[in-house]
Amino acid sequence: MNLLANAKVVVPDGVVPGTVHVEDGRVASISEVDEQDVTGWIVPGFVDIHCHGGDGASYTVGDAAQARKVAAFHLRNGTTTTLASLVSSPFELMLDAVHNFRPLVEEGVLAGIHFEGPYLAESRCGAQNPEALRDPDIRELDKLVEAGAGTVRMMTIAPERPGAMEAIEWLSVHGVLASIGHTDASYEVTLEGINAGATVATHLFNGMRPFNHRDPGPIPALIDDPRVTCELIADPVHLHMGTLAFAAHASVAQWAVLVTDAMSATGMPDGEYELGGLNVTVAEGAARLTDSGSIAGSTITMDDAFRNAVKLAGLEVPVASQMASQTPAELLGLDDAGRLEPGSRADLLVYNEDLELQAVMRAGEWIPR
């Protein structure tokens, strides 16, 4: 039995000064201790639903060996559950990725695939390759979902594209999360997409029409609807930390998730990289398309996102923890990830008082860092 003693333990309904008892890969119990004796934090392992790469490797090429490398890197940095996010790609690459990643999902290395595109708006494509963009195709979706047998978990769609409403409804019926993003949709069309079955907002604020009080666009429709869970990239490149705080308070932790949107340069030096066939330059940790200067993903880990949310945006540790773990796990329908309670899988992180990550445990096993 592993004992993680005398810390502030973040549990589903708050914080317990206690010791976590782990047995057979699961949380056996959490016993309370005197509040004066605790130091540091124990939080659930992070769940990242939007991650493209790290450690010089990328999910976006659909290669299993690179996917293992990415997942292992982010696991060392606190992400115990992750979706492999691809960018807009030809259908053949998408199908290859499903075939190649399905064994990793069955093995538990990945929780599934998130296709960020290719059914996105040209005017809001950001770092997505415009040559790969196209209208939604139910035939493509059917082949992908059938080949994956549960591997395809989420797809980002611009609701204004022809056929988008039918695709959103089809995805929701077939158990795939439909997410609205990279969109120039109006407020009304965004609501139509939500009514069709969309339940996620891909990196809220980024890659979408900005808010205007006379032409509100997608942002207030997404953030105000309790049916929608909003992704927030918790780095100062994508969002001012005041914007992150506002969004977290407006949607509350039950309907907001921290994501990385990390690309292959995460954990690597500044330099030249690639994303979806486009050249990316990373300077001072900010990734941008070499030609246009558009932001091209982030170079943060979920450890960074969590700490930024607390130290820069001023969120309380339990709130940031819920946004990084419990809410995304519930969004994915995972029963025993993203929370610490008796019977749950022992995915947990140990932090000191300064919120420096000290140790990572997944399924009761310590991960070498």
Rank of each mutant, 00 (worst) to 15 (best):
T327C: 01
T301G: 09
M302E: 01
E274S: 15
S298P: 06
V280C: 10
W255V: 08
L289I: 14
G333F: 03
T266H: 09
E341W: 02
D261A: 12
A262D: 11
S325K: 00
D291G: 07
P318A: 02
S321I: 00
A286N: 11
G267I: 15
D261G: 14
L334C: 00
L332E: 05
S321V: 04
A309V: 03
G293A: 06
T266Y: 12
S321Q: 00
T290V: 05
E341Q: 07
V310Q: 05
N279V: 14
A296M: 07
I295K: 04
D270P: 14
A262L: 07
T327D: 02
R307K: 04
R307P: 02
T327Y: 00
F306L: 05
F306S: 02
E272C: 15
F306N: 00
K311R: 07
D336A: 03
V310Y: 07
G285V: 11
R339I: 03
T290S: 14
A287D: 14
A309Q: 05
L312I: 01
M263P: 09
A320T: 01
S321H: 02
G285T: 12
R339V: 01
A324K: 00
V280Q: 09
L278Q: 15
S298Y: 07
V280A: 08
D261Q: 09
L258T: 09
L289K: 09
A256H: 11
P318E: 04
N308E: 04
S325R: 00
A287R: 09
A287T: 12
S321K: 01
G277H: 08
V252T: 15
A256I: 09
L278N: 12
V252Q: 12
D335H: 01
E274T: 15
L275V: 12
D261V: 11
